[in-house]
Amino acid sequence: MSIGESQLGGVGVRMAQQRYSWIFGLAALALVLGIAAPHLIASLLWMSLLTQAVVDMMLATSVGILVRQNGRISFGQAAFFGLGAYTFGVIAAREIASPELALLAGLVLPTVVAFLLGLVIARIPGVAHAMLTLAVGQALYEVAFKWRALANGDDGMSVRMPDTIFGIDSDVFQSPATMLVICWSLLVLMLLALSLMARSPFGQLTEVIRENDERARFIGYGTTLPRAIIYGVSAFIAATAGILQTLYDGYISPQMLHWSASGMAMIMAIVGGPRILWGPALGAFVLFFFKDIAGDATEYWPALVGGTLIAVTLFLPEGFAGLIIRLTSRAVRRIKGERP
């Protein structure tokens, strides 16, 4: 809102600075909380569960960013999660290159593939887009499923970790206490970066394009490239999550790429509220802990997820994050003594 800033002079700038320090403060707090978590949580099982939850939160964030900045629904996001995992897992396990290079390749390949794909599919909206991403994802799934020489096809493959990666003992990635901190910190940093991006000129441009692609062209922008960049960013986040999961589990399987995993991530994002940056992560967190609540009846967890989704779309169109924002702003107003 730089018009406001230029017209209001210093006030606008100061407000913007305040907003930024607010974001950095929140991120710092979250990081500290994450580092403290292993000391606060006694149960190893809980830490392990939380680690898994954070990976889900990352995947949900990646698909949420596609909704938020591109206005597109994807039913193939798990393909980039899996592509990252497979690229890293296969290269590392077969010692084709050093584990560091494998990790890098696991990040770069999905990002580049998604960017190039984005150049082609950016213009396709709605149902056709959902179907297209579904088809691309399933095609990759079929490759992982059928190609036994790659990683044992549908049996999946366990990935024996090298002793160190980037000089870090690989036990660090396999112990819940340390992996939780790593995953959580990365998630926080990603959300921080995404929120800075959303406020940047580029972020504003992508939202403008999301709202009205045609008019964006009439105010002088090509719309394909910005959209494709968002596809790349989103795949980068998904791939990070996939690599983290591979590091932690030491196992890759085609299920990582399956469309039902993509659909699940999409549901997490919608339940949390994709219009708010941290909404998808919140949705993933909540749904993950439904799993724990479901307890012994884990096979009914999907039903709980489905039921929650139906209830949220009917009664909370802005998702859990929207609800929280509404409640806190009401509370703040009450504290300030204003009438609601």
Binding site: I3, Q204, R215, A216, G220
Partner: peptide, 28 residues
């Protein structure tokens, strides 16, 4: 044919970024 869910100031700023600031405040 506008950008529904975007603040008016933001839309105009984004537009002026593509085309140069000239005349933005005049227009407003």
């Amino acid at each position: 044919n506008i950008f529904p869910a975007i603040a008016i100031g933001t839309q105009l700023t984004v537009a002026s970024r593509a085309l140069g600031e000239t005349g933005l405040s005049d227009v407003v």
